[in-house]
Design a protein around this nucleic acid. Sequence first.
DNA 1: CTGTTAGCGCTTTCAA
DNA 2: TTGAAAGCGCTAACAG
Lengths: 375, 375
Amino acid sequence: MPAERGQGPGRGATDRGSAGRPTISEVAAEAGVGRATAARTLGGYGYVSPELRERVLAAARKLGYRTNALARSMSTGVTHTIGVIVADIGNPFFAGVMRGISDTSRARGFDTLVLSTYEALEEEVAATDVLIDKRVDGMIISSAAVDRGEVAHIRAAIDRGVPVVLVDRAVAALDLDTVVIDNRDAAREAVETLVEAGHRRIGFVWGPPAAEQPATRRGLLARTSRNLWTDGERLRGYLDALDDARIPFDPELVMVGEKSERHAAQEVARMLALPDRITAVFCTEAEAVIGALRAIRAAGLSYPRDVSIIGFDDSAWAAVMEPPLTMIEQPVHELGATAARVLLDVLEGAEPRREMHTLRSRLIVRSSVGPAPAG
Amino acid sequence: MPAERGQGPGRGATDRGSAGRPTISEVAAEAGVGRATAARTLGGYGYVSPELRERVLAAARKLGYRTNALARSMSTGVTHTIGVIVADIGNPFFAGVMRGISDTSRARGFDTLVLSTYEALEEEVAATDVLIDKRVDGMIISSAAVDRGEVAHIRAAIDRGVPVVLVDRAVAALDLDTVVIDNRDAAREAVETLVEAGHRRIGFVWGPPAAEQPATRRGLLARTSRNLWTDGERLRGYLDALDDARIPFDPELVMVGEKSERHAAQEVARMLALPDRITAVFCTEAEAVIGALRAIRAAGLSYPRDVSIIGFDDSAWAAVMEPPLTMIEQPVHELGATAARVLLDVLEGAEPRREMHTLRSRLIVRSSVGPAPAG
DNA sequence: CTGTTAGCGCTTTCAA
DNA sequence: TTGAAAGCGCTAACAG
């Protein structure tokens, strides 16, 4: 850790005199009591007579005393801080989750240290190390890990006594409390809605970032299981709906490769140009919806007349699109709040239940689904 | 702090034997060297011979040693953590800023502790206390303070030796490094664009949350100066543009009251129902744009034919609206990155420059502005 | 009820 | 170069 060096002159432990940061001893001196008495009243524990208590409080006020949480944590072994690891706090989805986590932990006296991984496993590993070093009391992780071989860092945290709860993404190799939404059911319901409107050629947009189009359904699933849990679940839901309706699976209708608005647009354009073109698209993310919309426009088509569309992640703007979009609403705040609640319960002594907490999403029906146009 | 108590059984400092968390002494013992030697190699400072160094490293690896950042911070006096206080991390704007802050501080070895205030000053005060207690090395604050009487908590932080930089919102009463965007110019440019298209009745949507419509321009400004800095600046920009075009100010064209999509819709509906109705709206926030759009539709009108619209906070969806929206893009990531950079420079020894760093926003011209319809 | 004392795990003189 | 020892500010026995 060479970056550790060079933190400017004289900020060391020695030269910070009594300037600015009075300690408990100074308060004790000022109040004319022993330091333990001062500590007891300031720390809010143990017994201390009203008179002394008052004197200590007065002295503390006068000196502008503030407890040193670091020192306290050193002795108690707890930091009242929970670490959070997500893919990207700039992403509205995770921002919402973060808010849920932060609101409920704040209410229970905990602060949160957030780290973004940008979906890179090595960042995630580094992040757990940082959190362990900073001695967080517990962690909430939205992990990019899938393989048994990718969970060592999480196991390490647990072995060191740091409880972990998973959020948004389950990890099969780990038997932990996990808070997710009903991705598979949500996807199935959305695709069913499309099927019921008569669609049989339904594109799946924003899938596994594989290099090339898988030839078979089996190949696709295999690839997906090497991928983000949510994506896999949503794909399965899509397949469920097709199966129920006995619609044959066509690998050409699933997007693979880079997840970006641009690439989603390209893929939808491709599916729209197929001889037997798609008449509907199901998007697993808001950004994908935007890409799809672009492609539809660019092809000179309009929804829901020529193409129907349903996507994940409802937001305010979806309601003012013209026509308004039928979208799946995820309970983002509750996702975070629940994860925090489960973790805090454990931190406060509850036994970890190691179960899957599945929250319900909701299909907000608006006007982007219409009957399938005649072939 | 009664919440401090009751953190479950036996997690105290005493009973954590060598289980799970080896200390430097244990590593030293395992390696058969003095603890100082172990500390030097593990801490990456001071001299230590290659052989011993290797032995210590091996021992550390074997025991799974991880440094205790808390203990290190206790002696060094620095935590390598910066505190961030924003109104709401669930808000996409702040989420973007956070990402900027987090990315650049992470790159320079700092972690971030984020607290949301939901625009409540008392929450902000509590947040600074928490950050002081946790001994962050510096703070980045998007403050709700305006008055001279509301900045005591920020002054207190500075007095305790914690550098502070302000982000997104300037606070006149404070002479600090401040990173903002050119709100006033951006607003003026937007409104000018409207004026140049022939509009003279331009609504200002999402203003000061006053209870009632101010009667005069002076009254409005007075009220605004008691309010959020960004709102005031944007209002001033609006007035600038009107003045330049010699368009008289009409208090009925500014929205006051609760900031919500719903209320924005109501206000736009009101302005649309005026005898001399508005032909354009300028919105200071994305949520306001959505409210305005609703109102326009509800009135059976369409943009840009009947009403033109420009708003703050460009995002992906604005480009796929039909027609696409002309919006002001704020450099959110850079806002955060710059704030972090300025703060980190100070933490690394630079003199605070106590100046205003103004970032440029950009008007993204698309198709929501048209000629003013004939009266 | 109050004060004394011994750590928490690390960094940092200071001698050896 | 290495090791012994003191100290960061707080909590937590343990006597008094």
